[in-house]
């Protein structure tokens, strides 16, 4: 099976890799690029812990082939902080206790930061719909919603 040479931009930096066709995007990020902020949760495209932003859209990176992302721009949780300053959603999750065990948090941060790019003033319902593909077993989502509302206010 031939390997494929791919180029991607991860958090603004150009990266190259030679990958097997079957390598999943999440494994490219974690095991080839050694960025372990993106988590593998269920590995069946249900839980959303592996969410990254692919060309502007949050997607489950356990269900995308690395080779499909060739030429794409990827943002992972490591790319949210800018010049030592937390992204407003990161600040919101800290301030409003939007996490307990933290396993789902990278995915939650990616989905909600993408939401706020598209919608500066989401209603509670819209926030809940946006994170409906990201499962959290700890918080009951109440503080996650508050964290996103905090971030939205911050970004306005």
């Amino acid at each position: 099976m031939a390997k494929h040479k791919i180029s991607v931009t991860v958090n603004g930096a150009a990266r190259e890799a030679e990958v097997e066709s079957r390598l999943l995007l999440v494994h490219l990020i974690r095991e080839v690029f050694r960025m372990t902020g993106t988590h593998v949760g269920c590995d069946t495209s249900h839980c959303g812990a592996c969410t990254v932003i692919l060309d502007g859209n949050p997607v489950k990176s356990c269900t995308v082939l690395a080779v499909q992302a060739d030429g794409s721009k990827i943002t992972t949780v490591e790319g949210l902080e800018q010049a030592g300053k937390l992204h407003p959603v990161q600040e919101g999750f800290t301030e409003k206790h939007g996490l307990q065990c933290g396993f789902c948090t990278p995915g939650m941060l990616m989905t909600t930061s993408a939401l706020l790019e598209r919608n500066k003033n989401p209603s509670e319902q819209q926030i809940r719909e946006a994170i409906s593909g990201n499962l959290c077993r700890c918080t009951g989502y109440v503080n996650i919603v508050k964290a996103v509302q905090y971030a939205a206010e911050k970004m306005r």
Binding site: S45, N57, P58, V59, K60, T63, T111, A130, G133, N134
Partner: peptide
């Protein structure tokens, strides 16, 4: 459409 899978899956 909003009842298919979830928003992240619908992006793909």
């Amino acid at each position: 459409v909003p009842l298919i899978a979830d928003p992240l899956v619908r992006n793909r």
